[in-house]
Design a protein around this nucleic acid. Structure first.
Length: 288
DNA sequence: CGGCAGGTGCGGA
DNA sequence: TCCGCACCTGCC
C-alpha cells in the first residue's frame, strides 16, 4: 500500500484477479465521504465490482456505527479528545484478507522490521505480481495454492527460516477449509473468535487479539496487551509505568465497549506525534 | 563471537 | 494452566 494526505492506494487480489484500489477523502468532518476507485486490466462486471466494494466496506469498517459513535461520545474526553481530533475518522482495519494478514503477521514475528521487510520482499518477488496503476507501483499478493505447491525447501531458500513451515501449514489450512474467513466473520463472541484465531497454526494470543480488532472490528478486544504497548500507554495515561492489568481496568471502566479502540487511538496517536516531532521517552521504548 | 529479537509451538511439571 | 526452551536469520 501507499499513502499521502487524503489519498490511499493498495492492491487487492480477489477471485484470482488483481485490482488496484484508490481511496480519496471527500466531504468534511461533519459529512465525511470516501471515494473508492477500482483499477483493473479489463473492465470488471457490475457484480464483481459490487463484491469488491462490499469487501472493502467490511475491511475498513465503513458501514458500522462503531467509529462514529466512539468519536461522538469521546471527542471531549480528557485523554481521547486530542487523539480523536488529530486522527479524525481513523479506524482499525486491515486492507488485506485474513490469509494475507497472516502472511504479514508471521513475517513480523520474532524478528526486527528490517528482516521482515526483506522476507516479504523475497516472497512478493517470487510469488506476487507488481501492479502499475494510477501512478503507483505496488505488489499484489499470490493465491494460497502457490504456496501449497511450493516446497518448504524453496521457501527456506527465500531466507524465511522456520517460518517456511508456518506459511505452508497456513496455506494448507485455508485450502482444506480449516480456516474459513467468512465463517469467522459470523462469530459474534470475541473470546470465541480469539480462541478460533489462536488455533491457527503460527498465530498465538498476540496475533489473535490483533486480528480480533483489526480484521473483525471487535472494539472491546482488550483482553491481551503486550508489555511494550503497555509501557507506552501507561506513560500516556498516567505519566509513568503501570501494570497491564491497571491499564485494562482503567480503560474498561472509562470506555466500556470501546476500550480497545481507546487503547489503539492513544497508541497510534502517540506514534504519529512521534513521527512529526520525535519524543525522547518513546524512542527509548521503541525498537527498530 | 554470542545473545537476542513487538511470538509461537511444544513438551514436561 | 503455566513455565522453559527451541526456532531461522541477521543484527548488534
Amino acid at each position: 500500500m501507499s499513502w499521502k494526505p487524503g489519498v490511499y492506494w493498495q492492491t487487492m487480489r480477489w477471485r484470482h484477479e488483481n485490482f488496484g484500489i484508490r481511496f480519496q477523502k471527500l466531504g468534511s468532518n461533519s459529512r465525511p465521504r470516501v471515494r473508492a476507485t477500482v483499477f483493473a486490466k479489463k473492465e470488471p462486471s457490475n457484480s464483481a465490482l459490487e463484491e469488491i466494494v462490499e469487501e472493502l466496506q467490511w475491511r475498513f469498517d465503513l458501514n458500522s456505527t462503531g467509529i462514529p459513535r466512539f468519536v461522538r461520545r469521546f471527542s471531549g474526553d480528557k485523554y481521547l479528545g486530542p487523539a480523536i481530533r488529530r486522527r479524525f475518522g481513523m479506524r482499525l482495519k486491515s486492507g488485506y484478507s485474513l490469509y494475507e494478514y497472516l502472511v504479514i503477521t508471521v513475517m513480523l514475528q520474532n524478528t526486527m522490521v528490517r528482516r521482515s521487510v526483506s522476507m516479504l520482499q523475497a516472497l512478493f518477488e517470487r510469488f506476487g505480481q507488481r501492479l502499475v496503476f494510477d501512478g503507483q507501483e505496488l505488489w499484489a499478493f499470490w493465491d494460497r495454492e502457490r504456496i501449497h505447491q511450493a516446497s518448504e525447501e524453496e521457501l527456506r531458500s527465500l531466507k524465511l527460516g522456520y517460518r517456511a513451515k508456518t506459511l505452508k501449514r497456513q496455506a494448507d489450512q485455508f485450502l482444506e477449509g480449516v480456516i474459513d474467513e467468512a465463517e469467522l466473520r459470523r462469530i459474534r463472541d470475541r473470546s470465541l473468535l480469539a480462541e478460533s484465531l489462536d488455533g491457527i497454526y503460527g498465530a498465538g494470543p498476540q496475533s489473535a487479539w490483533y486480528m480480533a480488532s483489526e480484521m473483525f472490528h471487535f472494539y472491546d478486544a482488550l483482553d491481551y496487551v503486550s508489555p511494550w504497548e503497555g509501557k507506552i500507554v501507561g506513560r500516556v495515561l498516567f505519566g509513568r509505568n503501570a501494570s497491564v492489568r491497571k491499564i485494562q481496568d482503567f480503560l474498561t471502566k472509562r470506555y466500556g465497549e470501546f476500550r480497545l479502540l481507546a487503547f489503539s487511538y492513544l497508541l497510534i496517536d502517540v506514534f504519529w506525534q512521534h513521527r512529526e516531532t520525535p519524543l525522547r521517552w518513546l524512542s527509548q521504548l521503541v525498537r527498530r
